Amino acid sequence: MRHLATRGLSRHRSPAGADTSRAGLPSDYFDRAADVLADLLPHARRRTLDGPDRVVDPHILVPLLLRFFSGAH
């Protein structure tokens, strides 16, 4: 595995637990991107699940994935 050189780069420090992965992006960036993809991809539907942004309860997600992969969507 190759490692990228980081010499001379300052590291961004953030408060513990802060999510810096979306720094500088509009708050609705991913919502708009999902809408665009759903409009462009044939037979696509966008579903929004209740709960946290990143870790969805498996009891909610598994039935949806089973339906999707079985072609019953």
Rank of each mutant, 00 (worst) to 15 (best):
R54P: 00
P52S: 15
V36A: 07
H43Y: 00
R46N: 06
P42E: 11
R7Q: 05
P52M: 00
S14V: 15
S10V: 06
A16M: 11
R54G: 04
S27R: 13
A5P: 03
P26Q: 07
L66P: 01
R7V: 09
P58M: 02
L41E: 04
A72M: 02
S14C: 03
P15G: 06
R47S: 04
R13C: 09
R67V: 10
D31P: 00
D35N: 09
A18N: 01
L64C: 09
F30K: 03
L25N: 13
L9D: 00
G17Y: 00
R22M: 00
R45P: 02
G71A: 12
D53M: 09
R2V: 12
G24S: 05
A34N: 13
L41I: 07
G51C: 05
L64D: 08
D19E: 08
S21H: 03
L61V: 09
R54M: 07
Y29N: 04
D50K: 01
D19T: 02
P58D: 04
L4A: 12
P15D: 13
L61W: 02
D35W: 02
L9Y: 11
A72C: 07
G17H: 01
P63D: 12
A33S: 10
R46V: 07
R45Y: 03
D39E: 07
I60F: 04
A5Y: 02
R2I: 10
P42R: 14
G51Y: 06
P15A: 15
R7F: 00
H43L: 00
A34R: 12
F69C: 04
H12I: 11
G71N: 14
M1Y: 05
L40W: 15
D31E: 15
F30W: 08
V36H: 05
R22N: 04
D35T: 12
A34I: 11
R2H: 05
P63K: 09
F30M: 08
H73K: 01
F68W: 14
D19R: 04
T20D: 04
R46F: 04
A16Y: 08
T6Q: 14
R11D: 08
P63E: 11
H59N: 01
R45V: 09
V62T: 14
R11C: 06
R46M: 11
S21Q: 06
D57Q: 09
S70I: 00
R47H: 08
P58A: 01
A72R: 13
F69D: 03
S27V: 08
G8L: 11
S70E: 11
D39C: 03
G24D: 04
V56G: 01
A18G: 01
D28I: 03
F30S: 10
F30H: 09
D50E: 05
R7E: 06
R47D: 10
D57Y: 04
Y29C: 03
P15Q: 08
L25P: 04
R47E: 12
R46S: 08
I60C: 10
S27D: 13
G8H: 12
V36R: 09
A16F: 08
D19Q: 02
T6R: 15
H3T: 14
T20H: 01
G8R: 14
A5C: 11
T20F: 01
L40G: 14
S27H: 11
G17S: 03
A33P: 01
A44W: 06
I60D: 14
L37V: 06
V62M: 11
D39K: 08
D19H: 03
